[in-house]
């Protein structure tokens, strides 16, 4: 789960809070929280994550770690795995792992051919990590050439 998805989950657990409520309750710069939550790329720095870790009472290291597993990075890895027809291993939120070839992927889910011709559909927000990871600038252009469609 990316940092953005995780922050959204934490906010939902808080019950009815808006990004503006959280910005008002913390010292985060205006608009930063919304971007951290909604942008597909990694947004945020240590200072902002420390503030949020304290606000949500979660470990800072957890937020910091999730910053490295953005939705954008998952898109790159899925794109490369699908293009090269190489298997990918997805580490899921519930601790399980699924390995297979990417049959398709889209906004919400990944269709993973795990063998035998049957498909395992994994929700993207349930994916915590993956292997192999794609290089940072690997297929960014193919993924999002104008860099404007990620939210």
């Amino acid at each position: 789960m990316s940092l953005g998805d995780y922050l959204r989950l934490l906010r939902a657990k808080g019950g009815g809070l808006t990004p503006w409520d959280i910005e008002a309750a913390t010292t985060l710069p205006r608009g930063l929280y919304r971007q951290m939550e909604q942008r597909y790329r990694a947004i945020g720095d240590d200072a902002s994550m420390e503030i949020l870790a304290e606000y949500y009472a979660v470990p800072f290291e957890d937020l910091r770690w999730r910053l490295g597993w953005s939705r954008k990075a998952l898109s790159r890895a899925l794109h490369i795995a699908a293009t090269n027809r190489t298997p990918i291993t997805l580490g899921l939120w519930n601790g399980q792992e699924a390995t297979g070839n990417v049959a398709w992927w889209d906004l919400g889910a990944v269709g993973l051919d795990t063998g035998g011709g049957l498909l395992l559909v994994v929700q993207r927000h349930a994916i915590e990590r993956w292997d192999p990871r794609a290089p940072e600038d690997g297929v960014a252009d193919a993924d999002d050439p104008n860099d404007e469609d990620d939210d």
Partner: peptide, 21 residues
């Protein structure tokens, strides 16, 4: 709700949750 889902598949054959390690 899809937000509550981790994954889904056809339970027949060997493509069920047992594929998840």
């Amino acid at each position: 709700n899809k937000l509550a889902l981790v994954s889904y598949t056809k339970p027949s054959g060997n493509a069920g949750p047992e594929q998840l390690q």
